[in-house]
């Protein structure tokens, strides 16, 4: 059973589609509506794009980070070309190179093209190993969105307090609190952006191995045995020699 199928089938219904949903959009939409940098609308495509399919609760759509690994046997003479071909395949699907060596290459591809990329790269050699993992970060993303909403509410209240302060001492104290909340908001937004990016682009790691050239065993004629040391059946001839001659 291909590992890609295992990975896709094991994680969520969304993974079976060509375009796995990078974001649990409804969850974000419901909880982080005030920040434009977290685009909640992207993730709802999967739920929308299946006409005729049973309607899913959009709040259940997972946020998945896909990682794939492939082992390919390629002709020893074309290792470099194969590495280039992997990069070309990724870039052709909107991906990009992460790192490469002579026999290893890592690329990122848009998650909606993850399976297409895996299939395309598999065809560049003899695939001897294949694995897909999907990390579900929906819960973390949801928690961050809730915390973000709460902190933004706190920030709003602190701003109102700040406007109503009557002396410098109060203003400094509220300003300090406001600053701390703003820092937390920035950290949460950063983490959410990171998860969103990771979910939007999947990593594919490809290890290339020089294919062992097949040695054809050509069976030739049976080897000729060495000449038989069989003696001529004449007794005396075996006694001719220095030993008998010099014997007392």
């Amino acid at each position: 059973m291909p590992a890609a199928d295992v990975g896709a089938g094991a994680v969520a219904p969304a993974a079976e589609a060509e375009a796995p949903s990078p974001l649990p959009a409804p969850a974000v939409a419901a909880n982080a509506t005030s920040d434009a940098s977290v685009d909640p609308s992207q993730g709802s495509q999967q739920a929308k794009s299946a006409p005729g399919a049973p309607k899913l609760d959009p709040t259940l759509a997972p946020l998945l980070i896909y990682e794939g690994a492939l082992q390919l046997d390629v002709p020893a003479a074309s290792m470099t070309e194969s590495v280039e071909a992997v990069i070309d395949a990724a870039e052709g699907l909107g991906g990009f190179l992460l790192k490469r060596t002579d026999s290893h290459v890592e690329v990122r591809v848009p998650s909606q093209h993850f399976r297409t990329a895996m299939k395309a790269i598999s065809k560049l050699g003899d695939a001897t190993g294949r694995s897909v993992t999907a990390q579900d970060v929906s819960e973390e993303f949801h928690d961050l969105a809730v915390r973000l909403k709460n902190l933004e509410a706190v920030r709003d209240r602190l701003e109102q307090f700040l406007a109503r302060t009557k002396n410098v001492q109060e203003a400094l104290q509220v300003g300090k609190e406001l600053n701390s909340v703003a820092q937390q908001i920035d950290q949460i937004k950063g983490r959410m952006q990171f998860l969103k990016t990771r979910a939007a682009y999947s990593v594919i790691r490809v290890t290339l191995r020089a294919k062992q050239s097949e040695k054809k065993i050509v069976r030739g004629p049976d080897p000729v045995p060495p000449a038989s040391p069989r003696k001529l059946q004449v007794d005396w001839i075996g006694r001719v020699g220095i030993g008998d001659l010099l014997s007392p």
Partner: peptide, 12 residues
């Protein structure tokens, strides 16, 4: 030939 073969066989 027979003598040559025999002696060669014995390391002569």
């Amino acid at each position: 030939a027979a003598m040559g073969y025999e002696l060669a066989r014995r390391g002569y």
